[in-house]
Amino acid sequence: MLYSEKVMDHFANPRNVGEIENADGVGEVGNAKCGDIMRMYLKIEGDTIVDVKFKTFGCGAAVATSSMATELIKGKKIEEAMKLTNKAVVEALDGLPAVKLHCSVLAEEAIKAALNDYYTKKGIKMPGLETPCSGCCEGCCSHE
């Protein structure tokens, strides 16, 4: 299995690793049994994501997609972040092996879960964010 140079770069030098204290939104998807867990922390000011950090347990692709996804939404409006697709993450990484596409789905879901947490704390129900996937189904890959 071959990873692109971009994937290897984001794996070897992941951006935005860590956590944010008193984050405005925290989302976690996946489970240890399947070998992938992603947790995203968001700092939101107004309608802008001013900071984002992640912690990931998983394979090289899981780390790289987490890193790339955080890069793609950092400094962006919430509205834009909500539109982030796993496909965009994959493209930004110059592709992923087919068996690793579910990792990109996890990254998308982790961001949505964090945004959902942000809105839930504010008492707002935001459509399209409610059900982060468990991160453990082969079916996930069909999101692509």
Binding site: M8, F11, A12, C34, G35, D36, F57, G58, C59, G60, A61, A62, V63, K100
Partner: peptide, 22 residues
């Protein structure tokens, strides 16, 4: 997770193997 571990070791010039799903 094993695959991450193997990739990191590979970056340091060490070839090994893992039983992880990945």
């Amino acid at each position: 997770e094993g695959e991450s571990l193997l990739l990191m070791l590979d970056l340091k010039g060490i070839c090994a193997s893992s039983g992880s799903a990945c």
